[in-house]
Amino acid sequence: MERLPKIGLPIIIGIIILVIILAKSTVTIDSGHAGVLYETLGDGVDPEKGPMGPGFHLVAPWNRVIDYETRQQEMPEKMSVLSSNGLDIKLDASVLYEPEYANLGKLHNQKGLEYSSRVLQPAIRSAARSVVGRYTPEQLYSSKRDAIQDEILEETKKIVEPQYIQINDILIRDVTLPPTIKQAIERKLKQEQESLEYEFRLVTAEKEAQKVRIEAQGKADANRILSASLTDKILQDKGVDATMKLAESPNAKVIVIGSGDSGLPIILGNN
């Protein structure tokens, strides 16, 4: 077996070391992520230095890059809180959040990669307890859910945004009440709905009755005006006109003049 030249072995070793150094010096960051550079021979992470964006990067082999996801993320959270009257309420919510891109270095130095469990989770629980404690179970179950959701969002923002975390939204998917309280609220809501329907029927009936009264009053007024305007002379003239038209009919046979009431003619005999 032919031996390698003495100078060949150091070259091979050098190439291997070079490959290792290059492998340690290259970093590829995916889309939706950013890197925080940790300088081993320096002071760690420089909070004033901007993050490394997606793409290919060269770094010193003794340094390392800490990867952060910068896209919007969802953290589901189930909480048990107390209402204003001390009843146990369970909330099923989701928090939509992302780290502040420009402040990733500060976030890493203060909270680290586990910032969601160290900051976000305690913050939303604290905000939920504070907000829900101002409402009754009935308000939580029905009319105030959207307002409560908005209030929890604002309370959470006050806590986490100074700590370099951006809250985009908080969604309350479900509110679970004690079964007896839920049934009582549903009965009350049903009774209120039935009462509103009954009141609507009463109002509708009253409007219909009012319409009939107005129409009847209009007819009565019209008849009264007509009666006041019809004198005996006018009635006689109208009777004469009607008699003349009947006399012209081929079916009229006998006309008795002056035999009717008020001296109006009477027509006798029809085919």
Rank of each mutant, 00 (worst) to 15 (best):
Q191T: 06
K49N: 01
K190R: 03
R173N: 06
S143R: 12
H57I: 01
D146F: 15
G218Q: 14
Q210A: 14
V254A: 10
E161S: 10
Q193P: 01
G55F: 12
Q139F: 02
K245F: 04
I159C: 05
S83Y: 01
D150H: 12
D146H: 14
V256S: 08
V212W: 06
I20K: 13
Y135S: 06
E155L: 10
D146E: 15
N223E: 10
I148R: 00
E215T: 09
L4A: 05
G50L: 06
G239S: 05
A209T: 04
L264K: 04
E208D: 05
P122W: 10
A128L: 05
Q193V: 02
Q191S: 02
E2V: 12
E77M: 06
P137Y: 00
T180E: 11
L104A: 07
P265H: 04
K106S: 08
K190I: 01
I20D: 13
P99E: 00
I214F: 12
E197R: 03
K157S: 00
Y198Q: 07
L235G: 09
L87R: 11
A247S: 08
L37P: 01
H57R: 00
G35H: 00
V45C: 04
A222P: 00
V45L: 07
K144D: 11
D30A: 15
N271E: 05
T176Q: 07
D88V: 05
P5W: 08
I89V: 06
I152N: 02
D92G: 05
I181M: 05
E74S: 14
S130E: 13
A147E: 15
K207C: 07
G269S: 14
G269H: 08
I16W: 00
R118E: 08
E69Y: 05
P179W: 04
I225N: 10
V59Q: 11
T204D: 15
E151D: 15
E199P: 01
G55A: 09
S83P: 04
K49D: 03
V19H: 07
Q210G: 09
A247E: 07
N270R: 09
G269M: 00
R145C: 08
G53P: 12
K219H: 15
G53F: 03
F200K: 13
I267D: 02
L91M: 07
G258I: 06
I13K: 05
D241L: 07
E192G: 03
I152M: 12
D232N: 11
E154S: 11
N270L: 09
A222W: 02
M52P: 09
T70P: 13
P99F: 01
T40F: 14
A128C: 03
M75D: 06
Q163T: 09
A222H: 08
Q110W: 04
R201C: 01
K111P: 00
I17A: 14
L96A: 11
E2D: 10
A34Y: 00
L41F: 02
G53H: 08
E248V: 02
K106N: 04
